[in-house]
Amino acid sequence: MTEQSRALVDTGSRLTHGRAVIDFAEEVGAEGPIAVVGGRTRWEVGGLPTVEPRLVSAPSGIVDYKPEEMVARVGAGTTVGELNAALSQHGQRSALPDRGGTVGGAVAVGENDRDVLRWGAVRNAVLQVTYVSAEGKVVSGGGPTVKNVSGFDLPRLVVGSLGTLGALAEVILRTNPLPAVSRWFRSQANPFDLYDQLLAPSCVLWDGSTTWILLEGYGPDVDAEAGRASEVGALTETEGPPDAPGPRRWSLPPGELRRFALDCSEPFLASIGVGTVLTTVVQDRGSSSPAVAAVHDRMKLLFDPSGRMNPGRNPEVR
């Protein structure tokens, strides 16, 4: 954290914004197309910029971290790796996936961690957002506490919006305690039966023939869970799952994975009980219904009338 970012500026709301956020708002300004650059790890999601936008970078650094509250306030430009390293010193972690990118990128894209069954969805982890609006103003939504229903849910609107509604500057995230023990197992048994048998797996992955299971928690509980799973079929401890067979990410109802496996001729790695599939081909996700599309269009028009925020990207096209 720089000395400069410690200076807090009063903008009228109860949340005082750091100098770094105010500077970022000036950088974003109120005119001309802009795109926020993070780690460029998911740069192509939702389409590439159509016009040549001015590239801006969000403030980085951990602004405030209270381990005893299990919340962290962090600049959107901070890398997820840096955040999780700081949290791990206090035995905690965030729900954001670490793929080398930034906190802002992870929130804007909204994809969940592989072990979402343990860490929870990204959309449930973002307690407060601060972003720069298309008019160049600093706007905050949500609140700093783990529970909050004060007003409309701007944080959930921002998660997965690909920066098309505002340029994310800062977020408050809830954190979770790290488990005492993490162990991977491998099995040739039916993955759906394994998943049903387990009480609290962190991750169950299947490539069509082999299943990898991540069990976490206190040691004796992990042993007991492994024992339960082995009632379905033999289990072998292993280093971890294989790399993803391809860069394409599918989102399916978990109940459709059986059929997906029958129909799919490409290599894949499916998350049982979740519905995420990594493979080589692009998912045909159809298009939004006219009613949903109308709400999307009005939302974009109200938040970004001139279409200057991340032009070319569309959260409806994944």
Partner: peptide, 15 residues
């Protein structure tokens, strides 16, 4: 929203 983990589009269900 939807029954899949990461439905396309803005999270209108969450909102």
């Amino acid at each position: 929203g939807g029954l899949d983990p990461e439905p396309a589009g803005l999270d209108l269900r969450g909102v």
